[in-house]
Computed example of a mutant assay.
Amino acid sequence: MLLALGSLAAAPSASHAAPTAGCYAESCHDQDPIEQHCDSDAQSVASYSIADTVVELIWSNSCHANWAFARATPNLAGIYVAADAEYESQRNDLGTNFIFTKMVDGDPVATACGWTQDGGEGCTPPI
């Protein structure tokens, strides 16, 4: 999963340290996790199967933030991540193999959800 997000798969060498995260907690809201280098320690903390794919709730400890991630399938219309009043969504219209949302603050409980072309919806358990 981390390779699909674009992070470095191998541990950084001594001469090439991993980039420092560009945001933390609240300042990550509405930020791209890759541009802010939050994908370097990203991990899937919850998942939900829908539309022949799995929607994942992603957590970055260095950024203290969450976002949603899924592999794109024809029946998956989009995904979103929600935490309290914060909400970020992404439609499945990018023509890519995967989609991900911008981030929400990692302090409140968060959930990742997906919706289908035929109106179905499902979410991860809140974490």
Rank of each mutant, 00 (worst) to 15 (best):
E86V: 01
A21P: 13
P126Q: 09
D105S: 15
W59C: 07
A82N: 03
A18N: 04
L76R: 03
T111W: 02
L5C: 05
H16M: 08
D105R: 02
Q36S: 13
L57A: 14
A110G: 14
A21M: 08
N66M: 11
E88D: 13
V81C: 05
W115A: 09
N75G: 13
S44F: 11
H29V: 13
N61H: 14
A10E: 09
D30T: 08
Q31H: 07
L76D: 06
C38Y: 03
G6R: 03
L5F: 02
Y48V: 14
N92S: 08
S44N: 14
A68E: 11
Y24T: 12
A82C: 00
P12F: 00
W67C: 06
A112F: 00
G22R: 15
I127M: 12
D39C: 01
T53V: 08
E86M: 10
I79F: 02
P125W: 02
A46I: 14
N61V: 07
A25Q: 09
A11Q: 15
A10K: 06
R91P: 10
A4C: 08
S27G: 08
L3D: 06
C38R: 13
Y80G: 04
C28Q: 07
G78D: 05
A51D: 14
I50N: 02
T124D: 02
H64K: 13
D84I: 00
I127H: 14
A68F: 01
V55K: 00
P12R: 13
T96F: 10
Q31P: 00
A77I: 03
D52C: 02
V54N: 11
S7R: 07
A21Y: 01
T116Q: 03
C113L: 03
A51N: 08
T111A: 15
E121A: 00
S60T: 07
I50G: 02
D84H: 13
R91F: 02
H16A: 12
G106E: 11
V104A: 05
C38Q: 11
H37G: 03
E35P: 04
E26W: 00
Q43H: 15
S89E: 14
S89L: 12
E121F: 00
D118M: 00
D52E: 15
F100R: 09
A83F: 01
G106T: 07
S47Y: 03
G120Y: 00
A4G: 12
C63D: 08
P126N: 09
S27M: 09
E86R: 09
N66D: 14
C123N: 01
P125G: 11
S47L: 04
Q90M: 07
A85Q: 15
W67N: 05
D30R: 10
D39T: 02
A25Y: 03
A9K: 07
T53H: 11
A72P: 04
Q117P: 05
Y48Q: 15
D41I: 02
L5K: 01
F98M: 14
A112Y: 01
G120N: 10
A42H: 04
A9Q: 07
E88C: 10
E88N: 12
L8R: 12
P33K: 06
A10L: 05
A112T: 06
H37T: 02
Q43L: 14
S89F: 05
Y80S: 08
D30V: 04
G120M: 07
P12C: 13
